[in-house]
């Protein structure tokens, strides 16, 4: 009897491990439109309204926990903000003269900018779920293919780039965040035009790294990173140019081929409620 129990236990374990490995192999090697993927998208479609309801219902709890966390973060940020304020005061004097000149030009450009945004088919979405592990940084949004969202579409907030749409169901989509281990985008330093690639710093949700720069590239602290857009028509970029990404916080070994540029993203991916998906890319702009 005892031997039978042991044999049964081992058989179950073996069966489950083999089943998991078979699923893993089938799922990993499957193309985007495969059968397993279709089942997953079907289940996700069914679950989306439930998730959306739960996400809305639990918003006050999330806000409560977020408030406690923000209080701790605020203490640490206080010193940095004081330094930023002092610098901002100095800039204010210079900026005042430029402001008057700029205001006239801005009026002209504003209308044009607004039309470009409208042309790019912005779809507003609510974040309704996210993956729990560190390397796989994905959020689920409540807009899908029926709203025009497709894989590869860029996702932004008012602060800058959030990521790209990965998988889409009819009523939801999964967005790979800029902090995901597999994310990468062509970028440039807006101040100097230096180009490179931005990748996440694994395990640090508030940091990115700019790579593929040259030793002669002069990158400085507080430089701003934006998307570079398409530089070679053979390899079109999924992102429009000049979408803000982050600010350079530190340059390790500057002036060397191995220089490491640390970037703090403008968007806090841990605190996303609403995002916008750019569903219509204007080829002339990208």
């Amino acid at each position: 009897m005892h031997d039978k129990t042991i044999r049964r236990r081992r058989a179950v374990l073996l069966g489950l491990v083999v089943g998991s490995l078979l699923l893993l192999t089938a799922s990993f090697g499957e193309s985007a439109g495969g059968g397993l993927g279709a089942i997953q998208r079907g289940v996700s479609t069914v679950l989306t309204p439930v998730q959306e309801g739960a996400s809305r219902a639990l918003k006050p709890v999330r806000d409560g926990v977020g408030w406690v966390g923000d209080t701790f973060d605020a203490k640490g940020e206080n010193e940095q903000l004081r330094a930023d304020l002092a610098q901002a005061r100095r800039f204010k004097v210079d900026a005042e003269a430029l402001r008057r000149e700029n205001a006239q030009m801005r009026d002209l450009l504003d209308l044009n900018d607004r039309l470009q945004i409208q042309d790019m088919g912005l779809v507003a979405a609510r974040v309704i779920g996210r993956t729990p592990n560190v390397l796989n940084q994905v959020v689920k949004i409540n807009q899908g293919s029926s709203d025009g969202v497709r894989p590869g579409h860029p996702v932004v907030t008012g602060r800058g780039l959030v990521g790209t749409v990965d998988t889409v169901t009819s009523n939801s989509a999964f967005v790979t965040l800029v902090t995901d281990a597999d994310f990468g985008a062509g970028v440039k330093i807006s101040e100097g035009g230096i180009t490179g690639t931005v990748r996440p710093a694994a395990g640090a949700p508030r940091e990115l790294r700019m790579e593929d720069t040259e030793a002669t590239d002069d990158v400085r602290r507080d430089d701003t990173l934006v998307t570079s857009g398409t530089s070679d028509p053979e390899f079109p970029s999924p992102f429009p140019p000049d979408v803000p990404i982050g600010k350079v916080t530190e340059v390790e070994d500057p002036g060397s081929d191995s220089q490491v540029i640390h970037v703090m993203p403008f968007v806090d991916v841990r605190d996303l409620d609403f995002v916008e998906v750019i569903t219509k890319m204007d080829p002339s702009r990208s």
Binding site: V50, V61, R62, G129, T131, K140, P205
Partner: peptide
């Protein structure tokens, strides 16, 4: 459902709990 809809969106010390 609780994990994907709620717990994973509660950030504590830069990460979140996994109840599963």
């Amino acid at each position: 459902l609780l994990q994907v809809s709620a717990v994973s969106q509660l950030t504590v010390f830069g990460t979140n709990a996994d109840v599963v």
